[in-house]
Design a protein around this nucleic acid. Structure first.
Lengths: 241, 241
DNA sequence: ACAAAAGTGTTTCAAATACACCCATGG
DNA sequence: CCATGGGTGTATTTGAAACACTTTTGT
């Protein structure tokens, strides 16, 4: 952690933070991980104590190799969630002059996708909580705006990136996959057309995990074919919906 | 301009800059505006003096309403080019710990599109120069990397945004438009297919600017139909190529 | 006179869309 | 027994891609 002391500059510097929108999917709807703000460790005074906010915090100028490292470190400290630096996708910089009442703070917003089921155990329930996207309360700072923009980025990226990979468990069903896309994009698809399109990309493989298929009521279970997926991505594809 | 003085913080703060990749199109190829670095006005020591670099500079914590304002202000100061704040599209944050030899500096990169012909007169030729994209020299800091990423963003955005609007003069020809797309994407299109697709969007209008069409050798002149374009954009379209 | 630039239309193929029925299970 | 969830195939339409010739001007 950064040392407290006296740091002197010839010109004013802003403080820099990294905030992260962590998206998870519970099989029904998209959720976001929020924390309840406590006393600030770093800034002289605290702001928005007791309110909900996105996890994030101040850059450690000496230790954080990049701003994504800040995001990863703070997420870990605040929620217990340990993600790889490359899981953080940058959303943008929020730099309005009055966005923090204490001093000038600019924040670099990120988003990350996690497999909710596998990760729920690791999150520190005392501080962090999952909220359905449409039940997110009023947040500290400009965090509602950040969440909006991050959601927009997710909706865009879904056309180019394997969001299913990251949000669904390793084994999943076609209805789950479809529901995920429908949740993110806010639309509905025809079952048959959706499945056909997905299958044409050759990135899905039927898997037999031992669950007996006892009739049409138990859905077929799929896994992602990462090899084919990566090849497809290299050659500049577009997953259109 | 920011005041020089003694600014004291309890925790280390990084310096923050905004850099901008200004793209222009001369009818043949994509160009970028670069500046020759002189003595730094702000930082104690100067870095990369005499080398080519992207225009940009330090945030004025008291005056710059957002980081985009920093980008606009610095572009104006360094090249004479006066663009609207909303013309700056954010590309990303570059924050590697050793990217500036003087102190920890993180930069927020932007790109902007200009009509080269209309703007060339405004740029201060003493300090700034246009370079073809594939003739860009080795740049200061990590600016070559920033340029790469900005180009990638432009290539992506071309599918969703009216880049033609911003890069071409108000009146242009189909071959010019096609050449622009080919330059940015690095591919070639069939003349007929390209024109047909463009026309299907109903965003082009033939204009008669007095130039006589004296035969097939003088191309038809078009303008953008901004109304239709905006409507199309609202309804979430994709310009596919 | 010939090379270069620009205009134009049709055919073919692939993908998007729309649409209806059957089966098995759980309550 | 019936409501629910899940599987499957076909016909139609739309857009993408491939393709060749003619005209005019500049040299």
């Amino acid at each position: 952690m950064a040392k407290k002391g006296q740091y002197i500059y010839e010109y004013k510097h802003p403080a820099v933070t990294a905030d992260t929108v962590v998206f998870g999917y519970d099989g029904k709807e998209l959720k976001v991980l929020l924390i309840k703000r406590g006393e600030e460790k770093e800034a002289g005074t605290s702001a928005y104590v007791g309110e909900w906010a996105l996890p994030g915090g101040f850059m450690d100028v000496d230790k954080d190799k990049t701003i994504a490292h800040t995001a990863a470190r703070e997420l870990k400290e605040e929620t217990g969630l340990k993600l790889s630096v490359k899981d953080f996708k940058e959303v943008g910089t929020f730099s309005d002059i009055d966005r923090d009442p204490r001093e000038r703070v600019i924040t670099v917003a990120h988003y990350a996708l996690v497999k909710l089921a596998e990760v729920q155990a690791d999150t520190d329930a005392d501080k962090a909580e999952w909220f359905a996207l449409d039940e997110v309360p009023k947040l500290a700072f400009d965090h509602n705006k950040i969440l909006q923009v991050a959601s927009k980025h997710l909706r865009r990226d879904i056309h180019f990136e394997p969001v299913g990979f990251d949000l669904l468990p390793g084994i999943f069903t076609m209805p789950q996959l479809q529901n995920l896309y429908e949740s993110i994009l806010g639309v509905t698809f025809d079952r048959r057309n959706f499945a056909n399109k997905m299958k044409r990309y050759n990135i899905l493989a039927e898997v037999d995990d031992g669950t007996p298929r006892r009739g049409t009521r138990t859905p077929i279970r799929y896994g992602f074919d990462k090899k084919n997926y990566d090849r497809l991505k290299e050659s500049g594809f577009q997953l259109e919906f």
